[in-house]
Design a binder for these strands. Structure first.
Length: 419
RNA sequence: GUGGGCGUAGCUCAGGGGUAGAGCGCCAGAUUGUGGUUCUGGAUGUCGCGGGUUCAAAUCCCGUCGUCCACCCCA
């Protein structure tokens, strides 16, 4: 067992083979789908000034209050590791000014939140997120959800469910909050301790409390859309209608709440049963953020890739399926052939053929075992006999058949293009 | 931030005061130029780390780090 000294920090871990192949395939397929929808990658810094995150997510949110990796740099600046991707994208979008409308961005990378790890939650985790900038358009929201569904399909991920709701405009949100408080005040004593606190802090959270008593009270409430303006209700209806038109299955969920301040109008989640308590694969919504005098509007989502990987692994994928395997393994029977074999390996690699060989000059049997373990399709054996005859013993591992060939045929059989 | 479970070989785990175990994997052999199946043999550990109790601690106690799960909250 290793010493404690150099274990990874709590909630952070190495992503190694074979799991890393799962990640690579995931990223490749996602990028391809995003390309089809006209999205371009934006790579923002991982460190930003803390106020950017506060402005973007909201002073009162838990992420800002207690989950950021926040510290002073050597110049005394208040900086933080990004806890989510939208803020950096918004800083970029604000710089575009009026040209932002129509811009489609995605990001893919690590995010950091200093929380207690549990199933589906790490301190360094990875998100894929998108931002489609522009003023509210139901079609933009519907298309964004459709794209996500297509990404999940490209990953071969089954069994997920889209839940959708609206937060209305900022004015609606004020009306919703006071309406809910008014409706809950008479039954305050029957709510759990957390919900009594939520009543003042964040009423919406009462709607998705897990305690049975609170659920009953919440179920008796009118849907939050009742407190909203007519136009906001119509906006959601239009999104739902368009989703139906696009053959995307989405369930309206009046209890769906999303905690970050910048959401306005459509919000949604994609959940997957079997993920444990953190069952959201993805969360998204329409937002409106004021930054440095500019207003940035758009619609987007963030997907938690660790959770996606967890689902794929539960479906039986390990990454081994996508693992790299050498095409050829070069085996040295006699020391006299070693350097010639080294040169052969180099030649093959220069021509793009993945090949491996044992550099430690172990026994023939050990080299054959290594070839088998690496999953090489072919083995080239060269020893004393081959050195004198100038030939190569070429063995096909799947069939066990072997024959002596000369250089041109060797290259042909290995499907190496002429130099 | 709160609560609970768990840290023993590379991996999965058994052992709960008296000299450290299994399976898998790994290494080497089975008439010396051939892998996968089989057989035989072999190596591997500060029992996470630090302290305490004891004649004696992997085992009991305290602390700490990590891990898993849940709460809070979130992707």
């Amino acid at each position: 067992m290793g010493s404690v000294r150099f274990q990874p920090l709590q909630g952070m871990s190495d992503i190694a083979s074979p799991e890393v192949f799962l990640w690579q395939a995931l990223e490749r397929k996602a990028r391809e789908t995003l390309r089809i929808y006209g999205y371009r990658e934006l790579r923002t810094p991982i460190l930003e000034r803390t106020p950017l995150f506060i402005r973007s997510m909201g002073e009162a949110t838990d992420v800002v209050q207690k989950e950021m990796y926040r510290f002073e740099d050597r110049g005394g600046r208040d900086i933080a590791l990004r806890p989510e991707g939208t803020a950096g994208a918004m800083r970029y979008a604000a710089g575009l000014g009026p040209n932002a409308t129509g811009e489609r961005l995605y990001y893919l990378g690590p995010m950091f939140r200093c929380e207690r790890p549990q199933a589906g939650r790490k301190r360094q985790f990875h998100q894929l997120g998108t931002e489609a900038l522009g003023p509210p358009l139901p079609a933009a929201d519907a298309e964004c959800i459709a794209m996500q569904v297509q990404i999940l399909a490209a990953w071969g991920l089954g069994g997920s469910e889209v839940k959708i709701n609206t937060r209305g405009t900022p004015e609606d949100q004020v009306a919703v909050a006071s309406g809910l408080r008014e409706a809950l005040r008479p039954v305050e004593g029957q709510l759990c301790e957390d919900c009594r606190r939520r009543l003042d802090m964040n009423v919406l959270r009462v709607l998705d409390c897990k305690k049975a008593g609170c659920r009953e009270r919440a179920a008796a409430l009118p849907p939050i859309t009742d407190f909203m303006a007519q136009a906001s209700r119509e906006y959601l209806d239009e999104v739902l209608r368009l989703l139906e038109r696009l053959n995307i299955l989405a369930t309206q969920d009046p209890g769906l709440v999303r905690g970050i301040d910048y959401y306005a109008h459509t919000v949604w989640e994609i959940v997957h049963s079997g993920l444990g308590a953190q069952d959201a694969l993805s969360g998204g919504g329409r937002y409106r953020i004021e930054l440095e005098g500019a207003v940035v509007e758009g619609v987007g989502f963030a997907m938690g890739l660790e959770r996606v990987v967890a689902v794929l692994q539960a479906q039986g994928q390990t990454g081994e399926e996508a693992a790299d395997r050498p095409r050829v393994w070069i085996v040295t029977q006699h020391p006299s052939a070693f350097e010639e074999n080294l040169l052969l390996a180099q030649t093959l690699r220069l021509r793009g053929v993945a090949c491996g060989m044992d550099l430690a000059q172990r026994s023939l049997k050990a080299q054959m075992r290594a070839a088998n373990r690496a999953g090489a399709a072919w083995v080239v054996v060269r020893g004393e006999a081959e050195m004198t005859s100038g030939t190569f013993a070429l063995k096909e591992m799947a069939t066990g058949q072997q024959q002596e060939v000369e250089m041109p045929e060797l290259m042909e059989r290995l499907e190496v293009l002429p130099a």
